[in-house]
Each structure stands twice: as structure tokens, then as C-alpha cells.
Simulated assay, not measured.
Amino acid sequence: TSVLHVSNLNEEDNKMVTPQSLFILFGVYGDVNRVKIMYQKKSNALVQMNDHQQAQTVIKYLHGVKLYDRPLQIMMSRHNQVQMPREGQEMAKLTQDYSNSPLHRFKKPGSKNFQNIFAPSEVLHLSNIPNDTEENFLRSKFEEVGVVVGFKFFVKDRRMALIQMSSLEEAILCLVNLHNLKLGESNHLRVSFSKGQIN
């Protein structure tokens, strides 16, 4: 199976975990096809990955990691797939199909993304930054989520940068909220965890 059972999600109104936030976070470690937050028990969700290996990678890196103040509990599910609800049902918006999403990171075989899988860290790797984007603008976006303690553009390629948040939890929320932020006509910010440090 490639379906994960996720529990201990935050259900508070202002911190409620959405299908989109799980799609973005789990998508760092594999391509997410479907996400279903349980209608009766919103602290639980099913996440269908592209394959078993990607599902295992998610467990390896995200089990026990905090999202909105709660450590995620992730294990393999006994379900083989996530069923889509019928149109118009109340729970319809809690189940999303992302199988054709342009945001998948692992669609291309041999993509560099396969080598750049790192554990969650407070340092985030930003890429796809338009040349005219200022450091202050990027900092201000991340400061809406948490405290920025360091920033630097790559010397050889200004379309990439590292940004360091004051905690792992803030970095995770930045990734969830700011990955795919529109920066220009055709530019959307890409956010990943980095193994690099800002010295």
C-alpha cells in the first residue's frame, strides 16, 4: 500500500490542518495523489502517496515532527487507496485529489529532487527566485510566519537562497504556507528543507 494514516492533527479553527497543508509538507518526500481528512474525526487523515517507497520516506522524516504544535503520528494504513466522496457531500472539501498537480516534485525520473531529500530543519532552501526580488521582500513574507534569524543568496546563482527560521516548527509552517508563493508572472517560489547552514 502507498496510503498513510496520519493522526494527532490540530483541529483548532485557526490552526486546523487542511488537505493542502498535508499535500505541501508530505510532497517534500514524495508525490501526494490524494488527501482525506476524516469528517467525523478531523485529527485523522489518510494520505495516498505515489508508491510504497515514498510513503516509507514520509514516515522516516515526518513521524513525530510538529505541525501546528502537535507531533504528527504517521503509519502505513490498511487502505489501498483514498476514495473520493460524491459531489456535493459535506465532506467533499476535506478530500482532495492532487494526482495531476503541477506541484509534484518527483514526476521526472532522475530529477535532482530525488538527491535533495533532507530531514526537516530550520534552514530552508529557496529557489526559482526572480532576479529582481529583494532580500527584504522575501524576509517580510517569512516574518509573517515566524522569526527570521539568517538569510543569504547563493553567490553563484541569485535565484536560490537559504533562509533560517528561529525554530524547526516555524520552518515547517513557512514551507507549508510559502511553497508556491507567486513571485512573478511565471515564477513561483520553491521551498525545501536544506542541509546547508547559514554562517
Rank of each mutant, 00 (worst) to 15 (best):
K93V: 11
Y98L: 03
S99I: 06
S99K: 11
N100M: 12
N100Q: 15
P102S: 11
L103W: 13
H104G: 05
H104L: 06
H104V: 04
F106H: 07
K107T: 15
K108R: 15
P109A: 11
G110W: 00
K112F: 09
N113Y: 08
N113M: 05
N116D: 10
I117M: 07
F118P: 03
F118V: 07
F118R: 09
F118L: 07
A119H: 12
P120V: 02
P120M: 06
P120S: 08
S121W: 00
S121Y: 00
E122M: 10
E122C: 14
E122A: 10
L124H: 02
H125T: 09
H125V: 02
H125S: 10
L126Q: 00
L126A: 01
S127M: 11
S127Q: 14
N128K: 13
I129C: 01
P130C: 08
P130Q: 06
T133N: 02
E134K: 15
E135A: 15
F137G: 10
L138M: 12
R139C: 11
F142H: 07
V145M: 05
V148F: 07
V148G: 10
V148Q: 06
V149C: 13
V149S: 13
F151K: 05
F151C: 10
K152A: 11
F154S: 15
F154V: 07
V155L: 15
K156T: 14
D157G: 04
M160Y: 09
M165N: 07
M165S: 08
